[in-house]
Write a protein that binds this DNA or RNA. Structure first.
Length: 421
DNA sequence: CGGCTTTGACCGGCGC
DNA sequence: GCGCCGGTCAAAGCCG
Protein backbone atom coordinates (compact mmCIF):
# COMPACT_ATOMS: atom_id res chain seq x y z
CA UNK A 1 0.00 0.00 0.00
CA UNK A 2 1.77 2.90 -1.22
CA UNK A 3 1.45 5.71 1.11
CA UNK A 4 -0.59 8.23 -0.55
CA UNK A 5 0.81 11.60 -1.02
CA UNK A 6 -0.17 14.05 1.50
CA UNK A 7 -0.32 17.67 1.73
CA UNK A 8 1.40 19.39 4.44
CA UNK A 9 4.85 18.27 3.82
CA UNK A 10 7.86 20.28 3.66
CA UNK A 11 10.00 22.08 5.97
CA UNK A 12 9.51 21.82 9.57
CA UNK A 13 9.20 25.06 11.22
CA UNK A 14 12.04 25.24 13.47
CA UNK A 15 14.44 23.15 11.73
CA UNK A 16 14.21 25.52 8.96
CA UNK A 17 14.73 24.54 5.45
CA UNK A 18 18.22 23.62 5.98
CA UNK A 19 17.30 21.22 8.54
CA UNK A 20 20.39 22.18 10.30
CA UNK A 21 19.56 23.34 13.65
CA UNK A 22 22.26 25.77 13.69
CA UNK A 23 20.33 27.60 11.16
CA UNK A 24 16.99 26.45 12.09
CA UNK A 25 17.41 27.77 15.47
CA UNK A 26 18.19 31.08 14.21
CA UNK A 27 16.35 31.51 11.10
CA UNK A 28 13.68 29.02 11.49
CA UNK A 29 10.42 30.17 10.35
CA UNK A 30 9.46 30.88 13.80
CA UNK A 31 6.59 28.59 13.40
CA UNK A 32 7.17 26.91 16.59
CA UNK A 33 4.39 25.12 18.11
CA UNK A 34 1.62 27.39 18.72
CA UNK A 35 -0.40 24.94 20.44
CA UNK A 36 -0.14 21.34 20.92
CA UNK A 37 -3.66 20.63 20.36
CA UNK A 38 -3.70 16.95 20.25
CA UNK A 39 -2.91 16.18 16.78
CA UNK A 40 -3.92 13.01 18.23
CA UNK A 41 -3.59 10.56 15.60
CA UNK A 42 -4.74 8.53 18.43
CA UNK A 43 -3.44 8.46 21.81
CA UNK A 44 -4.40 4.96 21.99
CA UNK A 45 -5.80 3.47 18.97
CA UNK A 46 -3.67 4.93 16.38
CA UNK A 47 -0.72 5.54 18.37
CA UNK A 48 1.16 3.33 16.17
CA UNK A 49 0.94 5.74 13.44
CA UNK A 50 3.36 8.40 12.95
CA UNK A 51 2.40 11.60 14.44
CA UNK A 52 0.39 13.70 12.20
CA UNK A 53 0.35 17.22 13.09
CA UNK A 54 -3.07 18.50 12.91
CA UNK A 55 -4.52 15.79 10.91
CA UNK A 56 -7.94 17.18 10.63
CA UNK A 57 -6.65 20.36 9.36
CA UNK A 58 -4.63 18.69 6.83
CA UNK A 59 -7.20 17.17 4.76
CA UNK A 60 -8.98 20.33 4.61
CA UNK A 61 -6.19 22.44 3.50
CA UNK A 62 -4.43 22.05 0.30
CA UNK A 63 -0.81 21.64 0.23
CA UNK A 64 1.02 24.70 0.98
CA UNK A 65 -1.36 26.33 3.19
CA UNK A 66 -1.74 23.26 5.19
CA UNK A 67 1.90 23.04 5.53
CA UNK A 68 2.07 26.18 7.41
CA UNK A 69 -0.77 25.54 9.66
CA UNK A 70 0.35 22.10 10.25
CA UNK A 71 3.66 23.20 11.33
CA UNK A 72 2.16 25.75 13.50
CA UNK A 73 0.27 23.19 15.35
CA UNK A 74 2.62 21.34 17.42
CA UNK A 75 5.94 20.82 16.02
CA UNK A 76 8.97 20.02 17.95
CA UNK A 77 11.51 22.70 17.72
CA UNK A 78 14.93 21.79 18.73
CA UNK A 79 17.72 23.52 20.35
CA UNK A 80 20.79 24.59 18.67
CA UNK A 81 23.31 22.34 20.17
CA UNK A 82 25.96 22.88 17.65
CA UNK A 83 25.47 19.73 15.75
CA UNK A 84 23.66 19.07 12.58
CA UNK A 85 20.66 16.89 12.70
CA UNK A 86 18.35 15.38 10.24
CA UNK A 87 14.90 14.46 11.16
CA UNK A 88 14.01 10.94 10.36
CA UNK A 89 10.81 10.43 12.12
CA UNK A 90 8.14 11.84 14.26
CA UNK A 91 5.62 10.20 16.37
CA UNK A 92 3.11 10.79 19.02
CA UNK A 93 4.08 9.08 22.15
CA UNK A 94 1.53 7.94 24.52
CA UNK A 95 0.60 10.39 27.17
CA UNK A 96 1.81 13.37 25.30
CA UNK A 97 -0.21 15.03 22.63
CA UNK A 98 2.85 16.57 21.21
CA UNK A 99 4.76 14.53 18.75
CA UNK A 100 8.20 13.37 19.47
CA UNK A 101 10.66 14.05 16.77
CA UNK A 102 13.61 11.88 15.99
CA UNK A 103 16.82 13.28 14.70
CA UNK A 104 20.01 11.80 13.58
CA UNK A 105 23.36 13.43 13.62
CA UNK A 106 24.49 14.25 10.16
CA UNK A 107 27.82 15.68 10.97
CA UNK A 108 29.50 12.38 10.49
CA UNK A 109 28.70 9.97 7.75
CA UNK A 110 27.57 7.26 10.03
CA UNK A 111 27.32 8.95 13.30
CA UNK A 112 25.16 6.90 15.61
CA UNK A 113 24.07 9.79 17.69
CA UNK A 114 20.41 10.49 17.77
CA UNK A 115 18.21 12.73 19.60
CA UNK A 116 14.59 13.00 20.42
CA UNK A 117 12.76 16.17 20.92
CA UNK A 118 9.45 16.49 22.53
CA UNK A 119 7.48 19.03 24.32
CA UNK A 120 6.55 18.41 27.83
CA UNK A 121 2.97 17.35 28.06
CA UNK A 122 2.61 19.20 31.25
CA UNK A 123 4.04 22.38 30.11
CA UNK A 124 4.22 22.84 26.42
CA UNK A 125 6.75 25.49 26.78
CA UNK A 126 9.22 23.01 27.99
CA UNK A 127 11.18 21.17 25.47
CA UNK A 128 12.66 17.86 26.24
CA UNK A 129 15.57 16.72 24.24
CA UNK A 130 17.19 13.41 24.67
CA UNK A 131 20.50 12.57 23.18
CA UNK A 132 21.71 9.12 22.58
CA UNK A 133 25.02 7.83 21.59
CA UNK A 134 28.51 8.92 20.98
CA UNK A 135 29.61 10.93 18.10
CA UNK A 136 32.08 9.06 16.03
CA UNK A 137 33.51 12.15 14.58
CA UNK A 138 35.02 15.32 15.78
CA UNK A 139 32.40 17.67 16.90
CA UNK A 140 31.89 20.91 15.19
CA UNK A 141 33.45 23.72 16.98
CA UNK A 142 30.11 25.03 17.92
CA UNK A 143 29.10 21.80 19.50
CA UNK A 144 32.33 21.55 21.30
CA UNK A 145 31.98 24.98 22.62
CA UNK A 146 28.50 24.25 23.60
CA UNK A 147 29.50 21.20 25.44
CA UNK A 148 32.19 22.91 27.32
CA UNK A 149 30.13 25.87 28.24
CA UNK A 150 27.26 23.87 29.44
CA UNK A 151 29.56 21.60 31.21
CA UNK A 152 31.17 24.45 32.88
CA UNK A 153 27.87 25.72 33.98
CA UNK A 154 27.00 22.39 35.34
CA UNK A 155 30.25 22.05 37.08
CA UNK A 156 29.78 25.29 38.68
CA UNK A 157 26.34 24.63 39.73
CA UNK A 158 27.23 21.48 41.31
CA UNK A 159 30.49 22.33 42.70
CA UNK A 160 29.36 25.61 43.95
CA UNK A 161 32.22 27.19 42.29
CA UNK A 162 31.61 30.68 41.38
CA UNK A 163 34.38 30.96 38.98
CA UNK A 164 33.52 31.39 35.44
CA UNK A 165 35.56 28.68 34.02
CA UNK A 166 33.64 28.35 30.91
CA UNK A 167 36.46 26.50 29.45
CA UNK A 168 36.09 23.58 31.66
CA UNK A 169 36.52 20.65 29.46
CA UNK A 170 35.27 18.26 31.94
CA UNK A 171 31.65 17.59 31.56
CA UNK A 172 29.42 18.89 34.18
CA UNK A 173 29.25 15.59 35.70
CA UNK A 174 27.44 15.79 38.89
CA UNK A 175 28.82 12.76 40.33
CA UNK A 176 27.34 11.03 37.50
CA UNK A 177 24.42 13.20 37.00
CA UNK A 178 24.95 16.03 34.72
CA UNK A 179 22.85 19.00 35.01
CA UNK A 180 23.21 21.92 32.82
CA UNK A 181 21.48 25.09 33.34
CA UNK A 182 21.79 27.44 30.58
CA UNK A 183 20.38 30.21 28.71
CA UNK A 184 19.82 30.28 25.10
CA UNK A 185 20.18 33.82 24.66
CA UNK A 186 23.66 33.75 23.66
CA UNK A 187 25.28 31.41 21.45
CA UNK A 188 27.41 30.12 18.87
CA UNK A 189 26.54 29.80 15.40
CA UNK A 190 24.00 32.08 14.39
CA UNK A 191 21.75 31.83 17.18
CA UNK A 192 19.09 34.06 16.40
CA UNK A 193 19.17 37.20 18.20
CA UNK A 194 15.55 37.35 17.57
CA UNK A 195 14.86 34.50 19.73
CA UNK A 196 14.14 35.30 23.26
CA UNK A 197 16.17 33.67 25.82
CA UNK A 198 15.13 30.29 26.94
CA UNK A 199 16.66 29.09 30.05
CA UNK A 200 17.54 25.54 29.72
CA UNK A 201 18.39 22.87 32.12
CA UNK A 202 20.06 19.81 30.91
CA UNK A 203 20.18 16.65 32.80
CA UNK A 204 22.72 14.41 31.39
CA UNK A 205 21.73 10.90 31.99
CA UNK A 206 24.44 9.55 29.90
CA UNK A 207 27.07 10.38 32.31
CA UNK A 208 30.18 8.42 32.60
CA UNK A 209 29.08 7.19 35.90
CA UNK A 210 27.15 4.11 35.92
CA UNK A 211 24.46 4.72 38.33
CA UNK A 212 22.43 7.77 38.38
CA UNK A 213 19.17 8.23 39.97
CA UNK A 214 16.96 11.12 39.66
CA UNK A 215 14.95 11.89 42.61
CA UNK A 216 12.25 14.38 42.94
CA UNK A 217 10.84 13.26 46.13
CA UNK A 218 11.35 14.03 49.67
CA UNK A 219 12.57 10.64 50.26
CA UNK A 220 16.21 10.13 50.42
CA UNK A 221 17.87 8.48 47.60
CA UNK A 222 17.20 4.94 48.14
CA UNK A 223 19.85 2.60 48.24
CA UNK A 224 17.88 -0.16 47.18
CA UNK A 225 20.89 -0.44 45.58
CA UNK A 226 22.07 -3.75 45.16
CA UNK A 227 20.63 -3.23 41.89
CA UNK A 228 21.09 0.35 41.24
CA UNK A 229 23.51 1.65 43.65
CA UNK A 230 22.59 5.24 43.63
CA UNK A 231 25.77 6.93 42.94
CA UNK A 232 23.92 10.09 42.81
CA UNK A 233 20.55 11.49 42.71
CA UNK A 234 18.98 14.69 41.92
CA UNK A 235 16.50 15.92 44.30
CA UNK A 236 14.35 18.68 43.27
CA UNK A 237 11.78 19.16 45.74
CA UNK A 238 10.11 17.47 48.57
CA UNK A 239 6.49 18.01 49.11
CA UNK A 240 7.41 20.18 51.93
CA UNK A 241 9.91 22.07 49.95
CA UNK A 242 8.37 22.29 46.63
CA UNK A 243 10.86 24.67 45.34
CA UNK A 244 14.03 23.20 46.46
CA UNK A 245 16.31 21.70 44.02
CA UNK A 246 19.32 19.88 44.94
CA UNK A 247 21.66 17.19 44.26
CA UNK A 248 22.22 14.29 46.46
CA UNK A 249 25.03 12.03 46.10
CA UNK A 250 27.03 9.76 48.14
CA UNK A 251 29.48 12.40 48.94
CA UNK A 252 27.21 15.12 49.98
CA UNK A 253 24.28 17.23 49.20
CA UNK A 254 23.92 20.25 47.18
CA UNK A 255 20.70 22.05 47.27
CA UNK A 256 19.57 24.82 45.17
CA UNK A 257 17.18 26.46 47.39
CA UNK A 258 14.91 28.61 45.49
CA UNK A 259 12.49 28.57 48.27
CA UNK A 260 9.64 30.77 47.67
CA UNK A 261 11.21 32.73 45.04
CA UNK A 262 8.92 34.29 42.73
CA UNK A 263 8.73 33.95 39.08
CA UNK A 264 11.19 36.61 38.41
CA UNK A 265 13.81 34.79 40.18
CA UNK A 266 15.01 36.15 43.40
CA UNK A 267 18.41 35.32 44.49
CA UNK A 268 18.85 31.72 45.04
CA UNK A 269 20.91 30.36 47.76
CA UNK A 270 22.97 27.33 47.61
CA UNK A 271 23.52 25.02 50.41
CA UNK A 272 26.01 22.38 50.30
CA UNK A 273 26.65 19.72 52.73
CA UNK A 274 29.89 18.06 53.29
CA UNK A 275 30.76 14.61 52.26
CA UNK A 276 30.01 13.30 55.62
CA UNK A 277 26.44 14.20 55.35
CA UNK A 278 24.32 11.37 54.34
CA UNK A 279 22.35 11.74 51.25
CA UNK A 280 19.34 12.71 53.12
CA UNK A 281 20.49 13.87 56.42
CA UNK A 282 19.26 17.30 55.98
CA UNK A 283 20.23 18.12 59.47
CA UNK A 284 23.78 17.87 58.58
CA UNK A 285 23.65 20.25 55.80
CA UNK A 286 26.36 22.69 56.14
CA UNK A 287 24.17 25.26 54.70
CA UNK A 288 27.09 26.76 53.23
CA UNK A 289 25.73 29.68 51.46
CA UNK A 290 27.13 30.66 48.25
CA UNK A 291 26.42 33.82 46.56
CA UNK A 292 25.28 33.75 43.07
CA UNK A 293 27.94 36.11 42.16
CA UNK A 294 28.99 34.84 38.88
CA UNK A 295 26.98 35.42 35.86
CA UNK A 296 26.71 31.78 35.28
CA UNK A 297 25.39 31.00 38.62
CA UNK A 298 23.07 33.87 38.30
CA UNK A 299 21.96 32.63 35.00
CA UNK A 300 21.45 29.22 36.37
CA UNK A 301 19.47 30.59 39.15
CA UNK A 302 17.32 32.49 36.87
CA UNK A 303 16.88 29.60 34.65
CA UNK A 304 15.67 27.59 37.50
CA UNK A 305 13.53 30.18 38.98
CA UNK A 306 12.17 31.51 35.81
CA UNK A 307 9.26 29.28 36.00
CA UNK A 308 7.66 28.50 39.27
CA UNK A 309 6.24 25.38 37.93
CA UNK A 310 9.45 24.23 36.60
CA UNK A 311 9.72 21.57 39.14
CA UNK A 312 6.55 19.93 38.21
CA UNK A 313 7.26 20.43 34.63
CA UNK A 314 10.55 18.81 34.98
CA UNK A 315 9.10 15.95 36.83
CA UNK A 316 6.48 15.60 34.24
CA UNK A 317 9.01 15.82 31.56
CA UNK A 318 11.07 13.13 33.04
CA UNK A 319 8.06 11.11 33.63
CA UNK A 320 6.95 11.45 30.13
CA UNK A 321 10.15 9.96 29.06
CA UNK A 322 10.80 7.44 31.63
CA UNK A 323 7.44 6.37 32.64
CA UNK A 324 4.95 7.18 35.23
CA UNK A 325 4.20 5.37 38.37
CA UNK A 326 6.60 2.82 37.47
CA UNK A 327 7.39 1.33 40.70
CA UNK A 328 9.96 -1.16 39.98
CA UNK A 329 12.53 -2.34 42.28
CA UNK A 330 15.43 -0.40 43.39
CA UNK A 331 14.41 2.72 41.81
CA UNK A 332 13.58 6.08 42.98
CA UNK A 333 10.16 7.17 43.80
CA UNK A 334 9.51 10.66 42.95
CA UNK A 335 6.71 12.92 43.61
CA UNK A 336 5.85 16.03 41.92
CA UNK A 337 3.61 18.63 43.15
CA UNK A 338 1.86 20.38 40.46
CA UNK A 339 0.46 23.73 40.77
CA UNK A 340 -2.89 22.19 40.53
CA UNK A 341 -4.73 20.54 43.27
CA UNK A 342 -3.73 17.02 43.12
CA UNK A 343 -0.24 15.92 43.41
CA UNK A 344 0.31 13.08 41.16
CA UNK A 345 2.98 10.84 42.25
CA UNK A 346 5.53 10.33 39.67
CA UNK A 347 7.74 7.45 39.99
CA UNK A 348 10.69 8.07 37.93
CA UNK A 349 12.93 5.21 37.52
CA UNK A 350 16.04 6.26 36.00
CA UNK A 351 18.83 3.94 35.81
CA UNK A 352 21.80 4.78 33.83
CA UNK A 353 23.68 1.63 33.81
CA UNK A 354 25.91 2.84 31.16
CA UNK A 355 29.51 2.10 31.32
CA UNK A 356 31.94 4.67 30.32
CA UNK A 357 34.12 1.98 29.08
CA UNK A 358 31.71 0.43 26.80
CA UNK A 359 32.07 0.90 23.18
CA UNK A 360 30.44 3.95 21.88
CA UNK A 361 27.63 2.05 20.43
CA UNK A 362 26.98 -0.23 23.28
CA UNK A 363 23.47 0.06 24.34
CA UNK A 364 22.64 1.06 27.79
CA UNK A 365 19.25 0.69 29.16
CA UNK A 366 18.07 3.75 30.81
CA UNK A 367 14.64 2.97 31.88
CA UNK A 368 12.43 0.16 32.56
CA UNK A 369 10.32 0.13 29.55
CA UNK A 370 13.13 0.21 27.18
CA UNK A 371 11.58 3.26 25.84
CA UNK A 372 14.72 5.06 26.34
CA UNK A 373 18.21 4.03 25.96
CA UNK A 374 21.47 5.53 25.32
CA UNK A 375 24.74 4.36 24.11
CA UNK A 376 27.33 5.70 26.31
CA UNK A 377 28.04 9.29 26.48
CA UNK A 378 27.70 11.82 23.90
CA UNK A 379 30.29 14.43 23.94
CA UNK A 380 28.13 17.34 23.39
CA UNK A 381 25.14 17.85 25.44
CA UNK A 382 24.22 14.34 26.04
CA UNK A 383 21.25 14.10 28.16
CA UNK A 384 17.88 15.41 28.65
CA UNK A 385 17.29 18.96 28.05
CA UNK A 386 14.54 20.70 29.75
CA UNK A 387 13.76 23.97 28.41
CA UNK A 388 11.91 26.23 30.61
CA UNK A 389 10.15 29.15 29.24
CA UNK A 390 11.68 32.37 29.96
CA UNK A 391 9.69 34.05 32.52
CA UNK A 392 6.52 34.45 30.72
CA UNK A 393 6.09 38.00 31.54
CA UNK A 394 9.44 38.97 30.35
CA UNK A 395 9.67 36.78 27.41
CA UNK A 396 9.83 39.71 25.18
CA UNK A 397 13.08 40.78 26.50
CA UNK A 398 16.00 38.72 25.50
CA UNK A 399 17.75 39.61 28.60
CA UNK A 400 19.15 38.61 31.75
CA UNK A 401 21.02 35.49 31.36
CA UNK A 402 24.48 35.84 30.31
CA UNK A 403 25.56 32.35 30.68
CA UNK A 404 26.77 30.94 27.46
CA UNK A 405 25.24 27.67 26.73
CA UNK A 406 22.64 26.05 24.71
CA UNK A 407 20.61 28.03 22.42
CA UNK A 408 17.09 27.10 22.11
CA UNK A 409 15.63 26.86 18.76
CA UNK A 410 12.45 26.22 20.43
CA UNK A 411 10.04 28.74 21.35
CA UNK A 412 6.70 28.55 22.70
CA UNK A 413 4.20 30.82 21.22
CA UNK A 414 2.22 30.93 24.32
CA UNK A 415 5.06 32.43 26.17
CA UNK A 416 6.88 34.13 23.47
CA UNK A 417 6.39 37.37 21.79
CA UNK A 418 4.64 37.48 18.56
CA UNK A 419 6.82 36.68 15.74
CA UNK A 420 5.89 36.99 12.20
CA UNK A 421 7.47 35.11 9.48
C1' DC B 1 18.46 19.58 -8.53
C1' DG B 2 19.87 18.33 -4.08
C1' DG B 3 18.72 17.95 0.39
C1' DC B 4 15.48 17.85 3.81
C1' DT B 5 10.89 17.11 5.99
C1' DT B 6 6.82 14.63 6.24
C1' DT B 7 4.39 10.63 7.35
C1' DG B 8 2.31 5.89 6.68
C1' DA B 9 4.11 1.49 7.20
C1' DC B 10 6.95 -1.73 9.30
C1' DC B 11 9.54 -3.90 12.97
C1' DG B 12 10.79 -5.41 17.39
C1' DG B 13 10.43 -5.19 22.44
C1' DC B 14 7.57 -5.48 26.30
C1' DG B 15 3.54 -6.22 29.19
C1' DC B 16 -0.54 -8.76 29.98
C1' DG C 1 0.19 -15.36 21.92
C1' DC C 2 -1.60 -10.91 21.33
C1' DG C 3 -1.75 -6.22 21.43
C1' DC C 4 0.41 -1.95 22.46
C1' DC C 5 3.90 1.14 21.75
C1' DG C 6 8.20 3.31 20.53
C1' DG C 7 11.56 3.66 17.05
C1' DT C 8 12.93 3.46 12.24
C1' DC C 9 12.42 3.16 7.25
C1' DA C 10 11.58 4.98 2.94
C1' DA C 11 8.66 7.08 -0.68
C1' DA C 12 6.82 11.42 -1.82
C1' DG C 13 6.76 16.25 -1.81
C1' DC C 14 8.69 20.78 -1.10
C1' DC C 15 12.02 24.54 -0.79
C1' DG C 16 16.18 27.12 -1.67
Amino acid sequence: MAPQPKPGMGSSGFEGRQGKEELGAAGGRGEAARDCSPAKAGDGANNNKTARNGDEEQHQNPAKKARVSVRARCDTPTMNDGCQWRKYGQKIAKGNPCPRAYYRCTVGPSCPVRKQVQRCADDMSILITTYEGNHNHPLPMSATTMASTTSAAASMLLSGSSSSSSTAAVPGNLHGLNMYVSDNNNNMNSISSTSPSYPTITLDLTSTNNNNILNTSSSPPHSSSSQFAPASSLNFGAASEPATWGLHNGAGILNYGIGNVGRSGNAAHYRMSGPAAGPSSSSSHHNQSMLADSTMVAAATKAITADPSFQSALAAALTSIIGKNNNSSGKVVTSSSRGGGDQPSYLMNVKASGDANTAPSSTTSLSRTGSLSHHGQSAAGSGLVFQAPSSSSSSSSPHSYSMPAFTAAARDASTSPSEDN
